[in-house]
Design a protein around this nucleic acid. Structure first.
Lengths: 208, 208
DNA sequence: TGGTCTCTCCACCTTTTGGCTGATACAGCT
DNA sequence: AGCTGTATCAGCCAAAAGGTGGAGAGACCA
């Protein structure tokens, strides 16, 4: 029997312990490393060459989960990464899948679901929690309403309350471009003002 | 040596496993039960009479954490309850302390902090994570930052994405008055734009 | 190769918002 | 009777945001 090596990435100690305890009950799964940030994850992946990386998207400081996924996949395109996070935000799902995530699990997933996702990932299958799948499905059914990765990025910064100027600075684009993106976002969300966009975004996305 | 019995309440299986694994390393702490919802927590507390209840505030369905704390304390006023949650929302902290929580830990707390909180709780000491403590402190120090009822009403409508004009119509006041209220709200929240106010409002009230 | 997306940028104009400095009225408290 | 806090309203001006219409570069795909 082949054992599947797993790297855990999460800034919460208890979540790592929990996953370790849970995965430890499976004979064919071995946790070979842990990391508390994106940077640590890259190092640990290099060192342990895990078959699967189980990663939280929200990391307290430094590199965020999406960026970590991108870099992991860049260094090793075959690297299987499963997102394991608390919220099923539309934007996060799209960006994670875009960055190369093989699966998307919510933290309240049943243990069996987690095991299945890990085993599936090494075979190239992608597994996602039911709520996540339904959101993705909805997005596929309504292609007009999908935000592009860039738009999603902008929307996420928008919900922090930044001005157009600040958005431009943060994304290294001109204010004109910011306005263009915003106009597209408003159209897709069916709103007219940034206030409504923020409200819609936050209520629609995982933050409840 | 007296052992401290603990009941874990969290709708995330992995978090329960993690806490169990972590607490299991301590000779004087024993996990006597687990619950995935407020309702289960009440049952389990009755059955096991734990010295300490470690509880997540955000429970997927049914009774929420705050309500569960209230009921636990109502049935047994000596029941020690520690909140163990992901976010340090102002509103949640106040409500939890109000409901009778002995401590307030964030999920990224160090293991030692968790052990100390459990041991402290049985002695009637309250322990909270540093960010939580500083927020509580700020609230006590800055009574100026409390919004008046009218301002709160306006802020709540603001988070729906309404324009000044619409806010006026909805509240039967002139646009000028709306602007006055908004200026006061911005000052109290420490922001400059309505976008930031909306973001702050929603995040402060725990919806993240 | 041509079409479609996405991301980037620009100019012009209107509407909205925010900052500032006022004012009146009412309620509750001392 | 004064003081404080709250809620209401006004005008003026500068800054920010939104609407319109356009355009070029690069990626991807049929």
């Amino acid at each position: 029997m082949t054992t599947i090596s797993v790297l855990l990435v999460d800034d919460h100690t208890v979540v790592r312990s929990g996953l370790k305890a849970l995965l430890g009950t499976q004979a064919d799964i071995v946790v070979v490393g842990e990391a508390a940030s994106g940077e640590e994850a890259l190092e640990a992946a290099q060192q342990h060459s895990p078959a699967v990386v189980l990663m939280d998207l929200a990391m307290g400081a430094g590199m965020d989960g999406i960026e970590a996924i991108k870099q992991l996949r860049q260094r090793n395109p075959k690297q299987a990464v499963i997102v394991f996070t608390t919220y099923d935000s539309d934007a996060d799902i799209v960006r994670a899948v875009d960055a190369g995530a093989m699966g998307y699990l919510l933290k309240d997933a049943a243990p069996e679901e987690i095991f299945a996702a890990v085993r599936g990932a090494v075979q190239g299958k992608s597994v996602m929690s039911a709520p996540v799948a339904s959101r993705l499905f909805q997005q596929l059914r309504n292609p007009d309403e999908i935000l592009t990765p860039r738009e999603a990025e902008l929307l996420s910064l928008l919900t922090e309350g930044l001005s157009n100027r600040d958005l431009g600075k943060r994304l290294f684009i001109s204010e004109a471009t910011v306005k263009t993106h915003l106009a597209h976002i408003y159209a897709k969300l069916g709103v007219e003002t940034r206030a409504a966009a923020i409200a819609t975004a936050i209520r629609r996305e995982g933050m409840r």
